[in-house]
């Protein structure tokens, strides 16, 4: 197999979702511009070009409010599944395994191996940080994207206020506006439902061959075995 072909095969999941992200983002830009222009016409304003639309905070906040909720979802799920279990779920550890687990199970400290990541072998603060790096990075991206959505949402809100000849608000003022919290909560609620569904539905339902599911023939009572 050539190097290029093996790269594609080895990274099919990351590449496929990266590609679908770009395609759907273009879809959002096209449909968002059409929707925005329909609103402009209703308000007796000039329609804008797609380039104007994708460089507007209106597009920016629509993108970022969805990003932030996805990273909140993963951040919460990563941390919650350390401490909370769901009996029978493919997404859960066995009841009784709640918590950080032993150094032996986690292959840290004296149980680190020659091929363990460098920060695991280093010990001290580096191992402490690396042991939480997935949750920390997801949580950090959530905070960044939520902050970005607040800045773009503020600008978009103010341009609507101006179009309606209403007073504009400061960024801090926008954080107290219903618009900001409505955008946040409407995305958060769907993530919580989706994550809860995944945890609970995977107790009784199967997807043959998916690591997100238990093997088809495994008992409903069995927790955490993926296949």
């Amino acid at each position: 197999m050539t190097a290029a072909r093996s790269f594609v095969k080895d990274n099919a999941l990351g590449l496929a979702f990266g590609g679908m992200f770009l395609v759907t983002l273009v879809g959002q830009a096209i449909s968002g511009a059409a929707d925005y222009n329909a609103q402009q016409v209703t308000n007796g304003l000039e329609p804008v070009s797609i380039l104007d639309y994708v460089t507007s905070s209106s597009f920016g906040v629509d993108v970022m409010e969805n990003w932030q909720s996805e990273y909140l979802q993963f951040f919460l799920y990563i941390f919650a599944t350390v401490w909370l279990v769901q009996r029978g779920s493919a997404e859960s550890k066995e009841p009784g395994d709640e918590g950080m687990e032993s150094d032996e199970e986690q292959r840290v400290g004296e149980h680190a191996r020659a091929d363990s990541p460098a920060w695991v072998r280093a010990g001290g603060w580096r191992t402490t940080v690396f042991s939480r790096s997935l949750g920390l990075v997801m949580g950090g991206i959530f905070l960044l994207t939520w902050a970005a959505s607040s800045v773009a949402g503020w600008a978009a809100y103010n341009s609507e206020q101006l179009a309606e000849k209403q007073d504009t608000v400061s960024w801090a003022g926008y954080l107290g506006e219903a618009d900001f919290w409505n955008r946040s909560f409407q995305n958060w609620q769907s993530e919580m439902l989706a994550v809860g569904s995944m945890a609970v539905l995977s107790v009784y339902l199967r997807q043959r061959g998916s690591p997100e599911s238990k093997p088809v023939g495994v008992s409903h009572a069995e927790t955490g075995e993926t296949g």
Partner: peptide, 30 residues
């Protein structure tokens, strides 16, 4: 693993560029 690392860096780059781009749009009041 070198190709995988490139994909990892690409994902983080896209996320951070997206955040920076939207923040700038907002700060410019566009």
């Amino acid at each position: 693993m070198r190709g995988v690392r490139r994909l990892y860096v690409a994902y983080l780059t896209v996320i951070l560029l997206g955040v920076a781009y939207v923040t700038v749009l907002g700060l410019m009041g566009r």
